[in-house]
Amino acid sequence: MDTRFLQGNEAVALAALQAGIQFYAGYPITPATEIMELLAEEPARNPRFAYLHFEDEIASINAIVGASLAGAKAMTATSGPGFSLMQEGIGLAHMTRAPIVIVDVQRVGPSTGMPTLPSQGDVMQARYGSHGDFYPIAFSPNSVEEAYAQTIISFNAAEESLSPVVLLMDGYIGHLYEAIDLDAVNIPPVPRSRPPFGQGRRHFTGLLSRDDVPDTKDSAYYREWYAGYKKEIQIVADKYALFETVPNDKSNTIIISYGITSRIVRELGDAYAYFRPIRIWPSLDREIIEACQGHKKVVVIEMNDGQYGGEIERILKRESVSIPVIGGDLSLSQIVATMREKKVYKA
């Protein structure tokens, strides 16, 4: 037993160390800063861990891509404004197949928004934020323990898929304190899959390339490359098809929610079935279709204006009821009021 009373952000930092992080690059931002502050103390204890406080998030993401390609496990953590700045670098990591972890502790946007209040407004940005087509893996924890476990899983999935993985936290989980037993989370770290720099003559480029040589005019080759890349990521994502489901044959309504919202939503009681995607991207299409079978109404409750709800409708090919919880004040009474208004509340 190694029971600790930890904040979500602290759990992420400890989990990164457990996963074998060798490099952290970052820029302070509310509500993610504690991750950086904790890791800033680490180089003094561990000479094999490097840490750099950069001038901005653009530098941070590019530095971890460089460190990753050179052979180190690397991570950065940020919130919405920084996550926006990182999008081009995330695309570079997809193109160069750089395994990195990006933690986004979401806050209310757009722009500077409401920095200290939580949100789930970056869900679609995590999927589609960078330009062009790409196929990211992302996880959404709903507790401090899950933040710890899924940080390690994110490192492992990144290493196995050779792609950037996003841990979609929110300001609530990031600052929530809970007692967790670190020993109970037994996820062995996956070793580095690429040899380090200085042994070969490899060329990594953001251009489409074939055998280390840019090949930017062959459309058929692009399609072949994209299909292969997507398949490789899907195979790894399938290993981590994490979700939680509470079936209820007696209810005509299923509630889909994720992250901290799912914990508040469970207070609604036994009148509903529940489904919670933990691997939020790529979406768990088969599992969601299966869970929603036999339920007339599908209600999606999330701390944004219906972002994942649209995705659920795409998957199910039918209408859902969106209960947006926006503005950062997550409360059961507000959820109940909106559910009553939309006639999906069961007293």
């Binding site: 891509v65 050179a70 690397a74």
Partner: peptide, 8 residues
């Protein structure tokens, strides 16, 4: 490059 240098 600074990221590369930090780890190597």
């Amino acid at each position: 490059a600074e990221g590369v240098k930090a780890v190597r």
